[in-house]
Design a protein around this nucleic acid. Structure first.
Lengths: 218, 218
DNA sequence: CGAGCCCTTGACGTGCATCAACGTGCGTGG
DNA sequence: CCACGCACGTTGATGCACGTCAAGGGCTCG
């Protein structure tokens, strides 16, 4: 945001924002049709999930630092938001943020372009879910996390060159993200490890051994 | 658009627009990073498809009358657009449309909200692809087409009460949309027919026999 | 009439789900 | 201290939904 807003506008924005912190695995209240706030992710990772009536559920998006959370303007956005790791948010009152957008064309423009980017990402994911095999999905997932974690917006997440990092999701969350079962996730990780592409550590640690091989798999 | 723009603005918009018609199954040129126009679908249906390097492809969105086609502002949107049926578009020069949006807050606001809706739809589809079985996918697809075809924006498509209509896609396109194979699509349609939910006619005709049953399947 | 699509139908194969058992680490309470 | 439960992950055996392969039917077009 610093790139598009003037110092004066940034000031105004900051005066009306407040920080919130959440522990891992916590439902973030208020993601309902009448949600009254709006936020930007400062650190951590957030899952947006949708589910069918019988309980099957699917993570439809992962949010990382610099991503927006919440839907201003209008109608229901029917999913839940839950923290995957510890999370810090920068929040605004919804009405207030909408007002700021109306006043400051640059802010609205930024939000619009981000939304277009999100749409593009969602459609990429549609391609993945519809047309990839289990190991392709896992390779894509690992690379996606790696890229987001090293991104400049994520200043405190990891050194740019780190080949080793922690996945922000548990096995069952990965399964929900990739449209698989947890056993399949486990087995495919072993397969990737056997192929020499990665090395799984204790907990959720993972080391990249052969990025090229992973990329070839996607 | 008539709802949000003043008569004067509508006039201005119209003066700078032009109509284009396409036959079925035709690639719509210019959906590339440097696309120089922008359009609204007047009639017909358009497929947006993405594909992997080895040729597997997936339809990531279907556009119906009143939907926007094209990405203003900035970066590449990497997919192709192809007509499914005969299509009529209302086009604008890209630069010109961007200018209009900057001048007329209501237009930009409309576009933003539409984009947010599209994002929501894309995520619903992620849930479908990740977590539904083949017949659930088909039931959902049939209902989706039915609803869009009866929608008020689609004034000339079908009578609101029509239980019989034509699918805008061939079997292999349906397969590409649902992440299935064409044989599976064919068989699942038969299953739905055997269950008394639909009746398949000649060509792409379909009649709904039991909407409730279809809805229960989704 | 034959060529080429699109669609259907059947037989068969396989990737992933399902079911079940077990190991591991961690907190809780006896 | 161990016993216990519990969440999480792994591993193996089995099953099934959907993919794959192959053949054939109906349609349109030259």
């Amino acid at each position: 945001m610093c790139r598009v807003l003037s110092a004066r506008h940034l000031d105004e924005l900051n005066r009306h924002s407040y920080r919130k912190r959440y522990p891992p695995g916590q439902l973030i209240a208020g993601i309902t049709p009448d949600q009254d706030w709006f936020a930007i992710v400062i650190s951590g990772a957030i899952k947006l999930t949708k589910s069918l009536l019988d309980g099957r559920q699917q993570i439809v998006a992962l949010l990382f630092p610099s991503d927006f959370l919440g839907r201003p303007f209008g109608t229901a956005s029917w999913h839940t938001a839950e923290t995957a790791t510890a999370v810090e948010l920068c929040c605004f009152g919804r009405k207030h943020f909408e007002g700021l957008m109306q006043d400051q064309a640059e802010l609205k423009q930024l939000f619009l372009e981000r939304t277009l980017d999100e749409l593009e990402l969602a459609r990429d994911w549609i391609l993945r879910l519809g047309r990839s095999t289990a190991h392709e999905k896992l390779a894509a997932f690992i690379l996606l996390v790696w890229r987001r974690i090293r991104a400049p917006e994520c200043a405190f997440c990891a050194r740019p060159e780190a080949q080793q990092f922690d996945l922000p999701l548990s096995r069952s969350e990965i399964a929900d993200y990739l449209g698989l079962r947890i056993e399949t996730v486990s087995r495919q990780l072993k397969t990737l490890e056997a192929a020499g592409a990665i090395k799984t550590g204790p907990g959720r640690t993972i080391s990249l051994k052969d990025v090229r091989a992973l990329e070839r798999l996607t």
